[in-house]
Design a binder for these strands. Structure first.
Lengths: 352, 352
DNA sequence: TTGTAGGCGTTATCAT
DNA sequence: ATGATAACGCCTACAA
């Protein structure tokens, strides 16, 4: 049976003190004698009283609740990120209120809810959310923190890996392994992650003579991998020697398509590289070479940004970039130095 | 700059009406003239006013916020479940507050928070949460809904698949395919999912002559797969012909261990079956045969249970069981009918 | 240190 | 239909 919730007044009565005394007993660093606090706590326990955080927030203007907009949870990168973020925030007495943001649908609903609940802040991990939303929240004084996503708008804090650098590392690595006909499988066009990775990859290759890069869009959609594979190895010209996918999920499904639909061997016939270093990338079936995102550091940084903005509303937003590292696994092979043409030069091969 | 939040009083002033009128204008089905409502809405928009849900909840005693305890987000089954649950709940104007519950750690913290925030209900998906917690919440009138988990305690509503039946289907299928030396890789011992699947599998096999079942614990831990594989195929006796893992994640990693560490072929040398039908189970690299959980129906049912218990506090909790189906893929092979009986003997492999 | 009283923003009750 | 007024449960001056 649910008795009527005990309130601070009930506790006060039982303990024979004022209601404010009860409030103080449950407030860190409030001025109250130890004796009285003890009496209050005892009465509270007897009644099973717990301070109502919602009521408290009405006056403190802080709920301790932070909105979290997520798009694609089927990508382990995000589920892992979210889990760790939630864990770390809980340690600081914050909690995440989940918002699923389907396609580019009504991100206005999200806006409404965030405002209506007077959330302390909003974290955006979804690549699909409009930046218009960010602006509207800023002007209401609700801090916005972007994770794995950036925006020109400097009103939002953000944490992201150095995608451009990471992608350039991938490019250099592939070239070093002797690959010359390359391909880039893009993510969703207008996302910051895709733009930066694409730029990093292409720029690093631009200066290398004899390298060709095929560009094809994959939209971060694992279901497009088969058609991507077919297009890359279409009759016309020879297929690429190495393929860089804008994220691991696409890379894994592309590997499957290459191996089981096109009957190509990875890495013997074609090499594949991803980005993120999600757990499945390490599975024996894939052994995907990838550029890792420093997920723990990213989460730590995000927590700092959040706490910073929430506890001192005056503080300026910050943009943070973190570097990961190239994780070399078996999905990339070595090409023999085709001493031939334009520029490519020796690099001896060692193969597994 | 963050102007002071406009309140209903501000709107009332601007619109030249009472504060209660503003409240009514934003309340579905409140008695107010269309004319007045329009005036209020206009003034509200002008000021950027949005009703404060937190303040409202103080008197309605409903926050629209539901706690969600999750354990292992690295298992796609749960991340998918959560995503869909959140989606469906949002459509009903509910939102999920995330609680990560690490090991069997202090589930008391969770309890505290749920109470302190006066959440409308708590959904438990974690297999690790103590049932003591459920009881404490019930007595405070906070409904508890279990997903993919059951408990003796009938005070909680629950949605789960018919694990016992599903596992028995797996057993019958393996027997029908000619397998006789079987193995069960268990999940975490005292979880309802593991208990039920194990029982279903073993019972269905008990009545079949000539079948042996090896039992080994895997703890739903993908990192134990290698040692599990080694133990199963330890020198002594011949290894199993088919292995049923208590969930897909273990099955996938076990397949990797079998293939890449023990150099066994799946399904030619040994068959593997999982439970859940997570997305990766369909990957070409695995083609895992598995028993599916009807995740959409489970989510729908859960939403119903939640809404039911929240909106009519008098309603009794219900326990729901749903059936999935056997999804046959290439990870299971066929053994030739070894017309003989009791024990192991030659059986050549049929392959794809 | 302690109690009193006012207010946080809303909904609910009660007249009108 | 409308407006005053009292909750909702708590925090925080203010005064003592």
């Amino acid at each position: 049976m649910s008795r009527p919730e005990p309130t601070s007044t009930d506790v006060a009565q039982l303990a024979g003190v004022s209601q404010s005394a009860v409030s103080r007993a449950f407030t860190e660093g409030a001025s109250i004698s130890e004796a009285k606090r003890a009496r209050v706590i005892e009465a509270a326990e007897q009644l099973g009283y717990r301070p109502n955080l919602i009521a408290r927030s009405l006056i403190t203007r802080r709920t301790g609740i932070i909105g979290l907009a997520v798009g694609d949870l089927s990508n382990p990168f995000y589920s892992q990120l979210i889990y760790k973020l939630s864990e770390k925030l809980q340690q600081r007495n914050f909690h995440l209120l989940l918002f699923t943001v389907p396609d580019r649908a009504n991100s206005d609903d999200l806006l409404e809810d965030v405002i209506n609940y007077r959330l302390d802040a909003l974290v955006l991990t979804s690549t699909e959310v409009s930046s218009h939303l960010g602006a509207r929240l800023q002007e209401r004084g609700i801090p916005v923190v972007l994770i794995n996503r950036t925006t020109e708008d400097t009103a939002s804090s953000s944490v992201a890996s150095d995608n451009e650098f990471g992608a350039s590392e991938v490019a250099r690595f592939l070239v070093k392994q002797g690959h010359r006909r390359l391909a880039y499988v893009a993510g969703i066009q207008n996302t910051s992650t895709n733009i930066e990775r694409e730029r990093g990859f292409l720029r690093a290759l631009a200066s290398v003579a004899g390298v060709t890069v095929q560009h094809i869009s994959g939209d971060y959609d694992v279901h497009k991998s088969l058609s991507v594979a077919r297009e890359l190895f279409d009759g016309e010209n020879a297929g690429p020697e190495a393929i860089f996918c804008a994220n691991d999920m696409m890379a894994l499904s592309l590997m499957d398509a290459l191996r089981y639909n096109l009957n190509l061997r990875v890495p013997e016939d074609v090499s594949v590289v991803g980005y993120d270093n999600i757990e499945p990338a390490a599975f024996s079936a894939y052994q995907l070479t990838t550029y890792s995102q420093p997920i723990d550091e990213m989460v730590d940084a995000a927590v700092e940004l959040i706490v910073e903005r929430v506890s001192s509303p005056g503080s300026a937003p910050r943009q943070i970039r973190l570097r990961g590292e190239l994780v070399v696994r078996a999905s990339v092979g070595v090409r023999h130095p085709s001493s031939a043409d334009t520029s490519a030069h020796p690099s001896s091969a060692a193969s597994a």
